[in-house]
Amino acid sequence: MAASAHGSVWGPLRLGIPGLCCRRPPLGLYARMRRLPGPEVSGRSVAAASGPGAWGTDHYCLELLRKRDYEGYLCSLLLPAESRSSVFALRAFNVELAQVKDSVSEKTIGLMRMQFWKKTVEDIYCDNPPHQPVAIELWKAVKRHNLTKRWLMKIVDEREKNLDDKAYRNIKELENYAENTQSSLLYLTLEILGIKDLHADHAASHIGKAQGIVTCLRATPYHGSRRKVFLPMDICMLHGVSQEDFLRRNQDKNVRDVIYDIASQAHLHLKHARSFHKTVPVKAFPAFLQTVSLEDFLKKIQRVDFDIFHPSLQQKNTLLPLYLYIQSWRKTY
């Protein structure tokens, strides 16, 4: 089996927390979720979201995140109150960019949308954001926290390059993509939290790379249903696996070995980020709550012996909000 052949990389499970039942964490995340308004986002309300009498641009960002990046939404709820709305805006910006690729039928249209967001970032730093909910909220975040323009532009530029429907040539190319998107998002989150620390940035770099790799793995069944495969070609070739094997949902050992190798790289990034947690300011830990969902996925895929098409991998963990709150309460990542 794939797991038994390579099992030495995987460390002990961390979500089991001995003695936790003896201490009762304060009510927090679930209460916040219940208090949030929840009407559906419609095209009509989106168009009017920044106008008078609408929910408001902040509510639009929150709803977009809740629907399109639920794990990011849950993590954002546990940030300090003064930072929450800015991170909602930042993550909503990322969602807007991420959904361009799947929402257009022609690359030219995707490039036009990316050009809109490039100009939007430029206009935000000229205090002239367009009348668009996410743009307005992002402008507020930039003004409030003096966010670095370079990180925002890196996210747009990398998403634009990724409009080509090509597999990553190697794991390094996937890591570079993750660094310029997910890690950049974390650098900006640290700025919102008021953290300027080399060790925190180092952790953000590795956690962002782990996030990018896990996202690529999780999306494999969806991409396969659209006749697309984006997994690193070098690892596929190493194990003699073709793109057609993934399109046919082949579950042979060599296919699972490909998934094992890729998942192991995410695991190593996560492990390395945690190896120097004592040197990272505690104030930075809330920015890294996504490690909970990353670890949850890596454990699940290990349990199914790296069968990327196993139905259990597509099921939401209903206990994730609780695990996130516990992680926040324990002040760790």
Rank of each mutant, 00 (worst) to 15 (best):
S45E: 06
A48D: 10
S50L: 06
G51T: 15
P52S: 14
G53I: 14
W55N: 15
T57S: 14
T57R: 13
C61N: 07
L62R: 09
L62Q: 11
E63I: 05
L64K: 13
R66G: 04
Y73C: 04
L74N: 04
C75N: 09
S76D: 02
L79P: 04
A81H: 15
E82I: 14
E82P: 15
E82C: 15
S83E: 13
S83L: 11
R84Q: 09
S86C: 08
S86V: 02
S86I: 01
V87L: 10
F88R: 07
A92N: 03
V95N: 05
E96Y: 05
L97G: 02
A98C: 13
A98Q: 04
Q99T: 12
Q99G: 15
Q99F: 11
Q99V: 08
Q99K: 07
V100H: 05
V100I: 15
K101I: 12
K101W: 12
V104S: 14
S105P: 12
K107T: 12
K107D: 15
K107I: 13
I109R: 07
L111F: 15
M114Y: 11
W117T: 01
W117D: 04
K118I: 04
K119A: 09
K119H: 09
T120Y: 11
V121I: 15
V121A: 02
E122L: 13
D123W: 05
D127K: 06
D127S: 08
P129L: 08
P129Y: 09
H131A: 14
P133M: 07
V134H: 03
V134C: 14
I136P: 00
A141L: 00
A141E: 02
V142G: 03
K143F: 05
H145K: 05
L147A: 01
T148G: 08
T148N: 15
T148I: 03
K149N: 04
R150C: 05
L152M: 15
M153K: 14
M153A: 11
E158T: 13
E160I: 13
N162R: 08
L163D: 04
D164R: 09
K166E: 08
K166D: 10
A167I: 13
Y168I: 14
N170W: 04
E173H: 08
E175N: 03
E175T: 06
N176Q: 15
Q182F: 11
S184E: 00
L188Y: 02
L188W: 01
L190Y: 00
L190D: 00
E191H: 06
I192A: 14
I192R: 05
L193N: 02
G194I: 00
I195M: 09
K196S: 06
D197G: 03
A200N: 00
A200K: 00
S205I: 01
H206L: 05
G208Y: 00
K209M: 05
V214Q: 02
V214G: 05
C216D: 05
C216F: 07
C216G: 04
C216Q: 13
C216R: 01
L217H: 01
L217S: 01
R218M: 11
A219R: 04
Y222W: 15
Y222I: 10
Y222Q: 14
G224C: 11
G224Q: 15
G224I: 15
G224F: 11
S225T: 14
S225P: 08
K228G: 11
V229Q: 06
V229P: 07
F230W: 11
P232Q: 00
M233R: 03
Q243K: 03
Q243H: 07
E244Q: 07
E244T: 05
D245N: 06
F246D: 03
R248A: 06
R249F: 12
R249K: 09
Q251V: 14
K253H: 13
V255T: 13
D257P: 05
V258N: 03
I259K: 02
A263Y: 04
S264G: 13
L268A: 10
H269R: 05
H272Q: 12
H272S: 10
A273M: 00
R274T: 02
S275W: 06
S275Q: 10
S275P: 05
S275T: 09
F276Y: 06
H277R: 07
K278R: 09
A284V: 07
F285E: 02
A287F: 00
A287T: 05
F288Y: 08
L289D: 00
L289V: 08
L289C: 07
T291V: 07
V292N: 06
V292A: 09
S293F: 11
L294P: 01
E295G: 08
D296M: 09
D296Q: 08
F297E: 02
K299R: 12
K300E: 14
K300T: 09
I301C: 09
R303C: 09
R303K: 11
V304K: 04
V304E: 05
V304R: 05
F306H: 05
F306W: 10
F306K: 01
I308A: 06
H310E: 06
P311S: 10
Q314F: 09
Q315T: 11
K316C: 10
T318N: 12
L319N: 10
L320T: 05
P321G: 10
L322R: 02
Y323G: 11
Y325R: 05
I326K: 06
Q327E: 06
W329N: 06
K331Y: 10
T332F: 10
Y333E: 01
